[in-house]
Amino acid sequence: MISRALTTVLLSGFFAGILMTGAQMLRVTPLILEAEKFEVIEVAVLHSHASSGITHEHLLEGVALDLHQKVETVHGVETVRHADATESWAPGDGAERTFYTAVSNIVTGIAFSLMLVAVYLLRGKSVDINSGMLWGVAGFAVFALAPALGLSPELPGMTAAALESRQVWWIGTVIATAIGIGLFTETKSILPKIVALALLAAPHLIGAPHPFLFESNVPAELSAQFAIASLVTSAFFWLVLGATSGYLFKKLVQETSGTFLKTSPLNS
């Protein structure tokens, strides 16, 4: 059973990853490349506050950097040095970059497929291409739609709050939304459903971390196009992943091992 479940995961993840690479090349990648023209090199700025005497370092780019350099008299900037951004490896544009993107898309497909198939196994109910697609929609809501409500899909060069704080909010939102959707769909009484709704709303009531300044070097037109393009591409990816994993799970796992579906903690 384990090997057949893994085959389901690998095949559906690979398939969805390849299709997403194709879909990405239509809108998402051209927009990223366009936005990178506006991306300014990141600079590490060391400064100390006169009032508190605390010295610390910021990694700044674009508008934030311009602004920082304008107010240097207030802050007492000591040194400005360039980060080692130019020394790090990056795939060359063109075929090499597409190759690495395809590989990481496939890994992403496999990672999400592992979670979908784990949900199928946990529920122990029958899955097919149609219900698989619905689980794909749930995955899209958990991993793309809910986080995007707080943190719009970002283009390179856009101003945003500190990366770590956004990652923490992102992870928290994903966990709360996943538990919320699971609780809502798998329970029948009203109280757990109310708790589920509270969990779904909580991350958005708390609010995502946003930068102090919302200015950006990237034209708003590009950002708007990108937000839609990446969400639609994501939705396409999840629909393919859900449908493929549901179909393969039915063919490879369900129809070959009839006994395992009888016992589930969620069926009682």
């Binding site: 998402v28 795939p91 690495y100 993107t101 970002e154 390179p156 990652q167 990446s230």
Partner: peptide, 16 residues
Amino acid sequence: HNAAHDTRHAVTFPCH
């Protein structure tokens, strides 16, 4: 980060 860059932007991960 650089290898998975375009994927991160496409799947709406916080990236930069």
